[in-house]
Structures are given as C-alpha cells and as structure tokens.
Amino acid sequence: MSSHAHANTPAPDTGDAVPGYYEVMETAVRELLIEKKVIGAGEIRQMLEVMDTRTPALGSKIVARAWVDPEFRARLLANGRATLEELGIDFFEDTQLIVLENTDSVHNLVVCTLCSCYPREILGLPPDWYKMKPYRARAVKEPRAVLAEFGTVIPDDVEIRVSDSTSMIRFLVLPQRPKGTEGFTEEQLAALVTRDAMIGVVRASNPEMKEKSR
C-alpha cells in the first residue's frame, strides 16, 4: 500500500522520484541521532552553512597574500595552521596544515593514498578524481605521468615531491607566482590561483603571458 502512495506523490525538484537506499539511510541515521539527542536539531544545517563558506577562493586569497607579503609567507610556511587561525579560519581539532612552496627546483604534489584527506578548511570538498583510484594509486609512483595527464609538464631537472596526507596532516601547495604579474593587485593575483594549482596538479598561470609566448 505504501508503495502506491509513494508512486503517486509528486516528486520535489530533485529529479529523483524515489529516494535511494543510502539516501534513506542517511536520513534515518540523522533523525535517530537527533531524536536521541546525540546531536542537536540545527547542527546539520549550521554545518552545511559553514561548509558552503569553504571554497577554493579562500585558498586563492591566502596564496595571493603570500606572494605579496614576504613576512606572511614566512609565517605561513613555518606554521600554516596558526597563521591561518589568525585570519579567523577554524581547523578541526589536531589537524595540522603544512604549506609546501613550489620553487624553480621543486614542484609539490598532494595526494591521499588511503582515502581523501584534503585541506577542506581552505579548499572545500575535494574533486572526485582526487578521491578515486587512478590518482591515489599513481601519484606516488609516477607523478610526472599523472601531471602530464593534467597538461602539466615538469622539466626533468625539477624535483617532484609528493606529499601523502593523513587525517592529522593536510597540505596546501603554494604555487609559484606567474611571470608578468609584477603590477597585479592581490585580488588580480588571487584570480590566477586555481584549486588544482593548490593541489599541485597544475601551475598558477597568467593567461596574458601564455598568449604572448605562443
């Protein structure tokens, strides 16, 4: 009987007329935890709002600031978490943030071979490919080949360092400031810093320079 009522119920704008098994499980677990007062009724909604504020734009601002402010960059590299906490960014308990600086001789790449650890506080939720097998399996074994799949070719004389994240230690790549951006404002610089550049799979680039050099 219930299945009939179900089929006739107009679907909301999700496009899914019938919720999936796991979606039902998520709703059931959440509601039971609220009924039992294990978690508060408004906590999930509040957390969703907090999560919406965590986007790669935050990371881009941090990178741009590090490019223009050597003192900030030094502090960021010395203690990522403490420096960002000064800017009001909250971190999960015990999570450390290590900022890895790209130079002319070193290119950094971040992976989580075990699961999907990621600096969510400043980049938000990771892209799917970061959580899937090919990237996790191969980044530590053949980083140059993986980078090439992202269109990033690193010269052989540049060392590639791959950092494997854990639940306690997260990494942010500080890309190199693109050439030809000397007169840029901090805001203009931030616009050049993509999420992928902060994972290390691409460089930060200045589109104007690219056009000129080709």
Binding site: L48, M51, D128, W129
Partner: peptide
C-alpha cells in the same frame, strides 16, 4: 583502501555536483 603505488588507468578528471544527501552526510 590502501591504494598508493598500485597500477591503475589514467586519471579521469570527473567532478560532480554533490547531491544534497551527500552534503548532509558530510555535515553529519
């Protein structure tokens, strides 16, 4: 879950918009 160093195919640069229940699951 231990995948580091295994053989695997090329990275498919897939991304999807998180479904509402997935976001709620993450919030949980």
């Amino acid at each position: 879950t231990e995948m580091g160093g295994l053989d695997a195919g090329p990275v498919q640069r897939t991304e999807h918009e998180y479904a509402p229940w997935e976001k709620r699951c993450h919030a949980l």
